[in-house]
Write a protein that binds this DNA or RNA. Sequence first.
RNA 1: UGGGGUAUCGCCAAGUGGUAAGGCAGCGGAUUCUGAUUCCGCCAUCCCAAGGUUCGAAUCCUUGUACCCCAGCCA
Length: 555
Amino acid sequence: MTEEAIHTSNFITQIIDEDLAAKKCDTVVTRFPPEPNGYLHIGHAKSICLNFGIARDYNGLCNLRFDDTNPAKEEVEYVESIENDVKWLGFSWNGEPRYSSNYFDQLYGYALELIRKGLAYVDELSPDQIREYRGTLTAPGKNSPYRDRTVEENLALFEKMKNGEFEEGKACLRAKIDMASSFICMRDPVIYRIKFATHHQTGDKWCIYPMYDFTHCISDAIEGITHSICTLEFQDNRRLYDWVLDHISIEHHPHQYEFSRLNLEYAITSKRKLNLLVKEKIVDGWDDPRMTTISGLRRRGYTPASIREFCRRIGVTKQDNTVEFSALESCIREDLNEHAQRRMAVLNPLRLVIDNYPEGQVEQLDAQNHPLKPELGSRKVPFTRELYIEADDFRKEGNKKFKRLSLEKEVRLRYGYIIKAESCEEDENGNVTCVHCTYIPESLGQDVEGHKPKGVIHWVSATEGKTAEIRLYERLFKIPNPGAADDFLSTINENSLRIIENAWIEPALQDAAVSEAFQFERTGYFCADSKYTTSEKKVFNLTVALKEDSQKAAA
RNA sequence: UGGGGUAUCGCCAAGUGGUAAGGCAGCGGAUUCUGAUUCCGCCAUCCCAAGGUUCGAAUCCUUGUACCCCAGCCA
């Protein structure tokens, strides 16, 4: 995955290729325009990779613009997290971050221009009345009684709006287009509304704020955007985008193209719902490792490259889609298999005693950090008489398919000796509490004539090993499409987090840095949790489990 | 019921009139001191349906069907 496809083709890049060939533009300029009303999620990653990817591939530019026209919903915490996430994903924007609010003065000027041209008017219908007058999908709307005010009257009234002389909802500015249009968004859309809210960027300078449809196209034009890429639900809005730019004095007219948003199984990509999970404390913040937010994936152990690769693989089209979660997991496994060092950790410990191994002896065995990459070197793993192995790796009686330890049978301890289980102790419930073995001293690092172990199992020294907390995750939701459920909170998987308080880890893992990925051999990929790991206590997150052969389940 | 969109393998997705790429998932088998990785093989006579045009159609035409989006002073 170190080699990323430089140029991935899709219907948008094909349009760009044509535009470039036809000299419609010289350098390609795109933008990523999130509203700072929440944290970015995997769906945004698709848009980020598309917009910044195009800028990279075409030697163009991509702006980061905060679409901040609704102060009631936005916060600086979100702008900071967004900048952080975009950078983390490996992209850098053109110049400084922009804000739609940077253009409030210009936007106001263009609104005045529309009024002067008789193309906008101050409406005093109530929100309810406006809805009534709008008509329905099949029936045309009707004109507001305020639609034919004079330019002078509108100018004066808009001035009053701006000066705070109207209460919220008592007046708004509307574009005068066509109340009978089959595009609902063209039935005299509201372009300015009154909000007595402090804006995170402009403070209390304004009490009227431009609407998205009026703001977005003009912001794009001001920034010289050549290809304005957004999601499918804005297809109708494109008519309004073009109408505004066609009716104001502005030279540049960007073009909008729409692609389908990403739907990921077992995930939600609705900021509103993500927000609810956080507010209701169903998850441990926006960066909960079970969340498919960028920050959640980061904390979980996903790498930027794996997310970029995922976005490359899913492609860009106009088809509605729901991508299987395994597609994402495949990307992180591929990356981590390549880059993560191997370590041993026992999650569900079972005591194992090697009866013929000297008591008190500690051998430092050499263990490769990566089986396919000798250049990554090795570390020492202490081997002692008493060890812990995974409880699942022992059965009193195995079978042909059971490639682990059972009585009278032999198995190799990873990086260590071949052992044979001789007996085991059980508690009153019949649970095995300890396995007694013998080892073959000459089997270290080599095969021994006449001995063919059934498999290889991992282990940690009971006396030299350390303990750590390990957090195992399952999908946050019980069903593939929680977003479509009437009550998505009822689809939460209550077993999505399982905490193992005392897992055993090899000593080398004590030094694991936060965000450093490891493969716990035969188990999965893990990383130290950025929030709960302390100097005394290591907490590891399961990023993704290793793939399991179907034979394993059958055994 | 108006308008805007979309229909190619279980899930993504190439294909742009010349006879169905690739990835994920799945299934066989080989190698393996990780039941991982790697490797090799299999996996759409068919492209929403039905007609039509053509020597030739997933691609063009016709008529249907299904699904998604639009009636916030949200974005």
